[in-house]
């Protein structure tokens, strides 16, 4: 379980960083999205992995740490908003320059 999660996070991070370094805004957005998936999984794992345990503390019952779940929720919402804005900005750059490159020059 731990090895599987760690591998998934590693692959997502590696793909995210590779895509972020591409010169097109589309791959940049995809890369940042993958990176934020990796980060969310990582945050989730910071409360330790537990099977069949709800994030609710009850007398005698098994439970998992609820705080990372709240953190992940916040991080997802923020990351989603940011990515949406980045897509808007990329579209605007595309319409202004006619080019999807991250350092596009003015349309001539």
């Amino acid at each position: 379980m731990e090895a599987l999660l760690a591998t998934a996070i590693a692959i997502l991070t590696a793909c995210g960083i590779f895509l972020m370094l591409r010169p097109r805004t589309f791959s940049l957005v995809l890369g940042l999205t993958l990176l934020s998936y990796a980060v969310n999984l990582f945050l989730f794992a910071s409360g330790r992995l537990r099977m069949d345990a709800p994030p609710l503390i009850r007398e005698g019952a098994a439970y998992t740490d609820p705080l990372p779940q709240a953190l992940v929720l916040t991080a997802i919402v923020i990351g989603f908003g940011m990515t949406a804005y980045l897509v808007m900005l990329a579209l605007r750059a595309l319409s202004e320059s006619g080019d999807d490159s991250v350092d596009a020059k003015e349309k001539t």
Partner: peptide
Amino acid sequence: LAGSALFLIALGLLY
């Protein structure tokens, strides 16, 4: 955005 991702990794590690 990349900085925010790093921030979250740091927070996850810290927690």
